[in-house]
Design a protein around this nucleic acid. Structure first.
Length: 264
DNA sequence: AACCTTCGCAACCGCAAGGAT
DNA sequence: CATCCTTGCGGTTGCGAAGGT
């Protein structure tokens, strides 16, 4: 596997690295150490640009790199850190010292992201795929429904209502946990919290997120498309996804009107 | 067996941040 | 303070391998 070798306008080699090039780079770094990537290739006798050397070292040659399949625990860690840090692969890699940011990013894009989508989780928000969003153009507090070409029965039959409530409750529960974390950051010691690698969130960002929660919980509007999508899914999925009993989730659902006050 | 599609991963590119001058 | 240079990061691409038809 690898890219074809070619030379750019300045005569610098591009594409796949050979074993000999690897050996030369490692030998140079072992003898002279890291630093000045721009000058390094010439000194090491390589026809490469500094950027290419740096990348090769960091992602492949550097000692202590773990290669090969990710373990379930590692995958769980990636998902966890991604939910906290987003696409900040370098920051995630710092939490997993044996893996490179490139490796983590590749595994996320090729595998984990798709897996979350299949499970009904939005890979960017890490929340169940349900569009509970503020609708600034409307003042009504009730969800409005539009007809669906594929669904003609009422969305408020007993089973479908239960499904909807479960899904809503799960989404709210997820958001609420996220909010609690942010609230603790603000109320406890924001300056200290900013320093925490796992959070890396500024006070301003945190406050914006809090305001966002207020907006969504106060307005409490659901897109009609989402409603019909929800109602077409089997009930079992909710329990397997969220591991909550119907009654537990219904209790969470009932918290909607008080969520905004709760946050204050 | 041949062809096509998907997967996995190494490497490239562009951009931004931060330091040096 | 402005400009240049270096480094680091994240998104994307290219290509062989593996799997499916």
């Amino acid at each position: 596997m690898g890219r074809t070798t070619w030379y750019d306008d300045e005569g610098l080699k591009k594409g796949e690295w050979t074993a000999e090039e690897d050996r030369m780079l490692v030998a140079y770094i072992n003898e002279y150490g890291l630093g000045d990537w721009r000058a390094m290739p010439k000194r090491a006798g390589l026809q490469r640009c500094g950027k290419s050397c740096r990348l090769r070292w960091l992602n492949y040659l550097r000692p202590g790199i773990k290669r090969g399949k990710f373990t379930p625990q590692e995958e769980e860690d990636i998902i966890k850190f991604h939910s906290l840090l987003g696409n900040r692969w370098a920051a995630i890699a710092k939490e997993m010292p044996n893996r490179t940011d490139n490796d983590i990013k590749n595994h996320w894009n090729s595998c984990l992201k798709k897996r979350l989508v299949r499970s009904g989780i939005d890979p960017m928000t890490h929340e169940p795929v349900v569009n509970v969003k503020a609708n600034s153009s409307s003042t009504t507090s009730s969800p409005t429904l539009t007809p669906s070409s594929s669904t003609t029965s009422s969305p408020f039959s007993s089973t479908s209502s239960a499904r909807l409530l479960n899904r809503l409750a799960a989404g709210i529960s997820s958001r609420k946990q996220g909010f609690d974390r942010i609230k603790n950051v603000i109320l406890s010691e924001p300056r200290q919290a900013v320093k925490e690698d796992a959070l890396m969130i500024s006070r301003k960002e945190a406050e914006e997120e809090v305001n966002g929660c207020f907006m969504e919980s106060d307005d409490n509007l659901i897109s009609t498309t989402s409603l019909y999508e929800l109602l077409s899914e089997p009930y079992d999925m909710y329990q397997s996804d969220f591991g909550l009993e119907v009654d537990d989730q219904f209790d969470l659902f009932l918290e909607i009107p008080t969520l905004g006050q709760d946050l204050s």
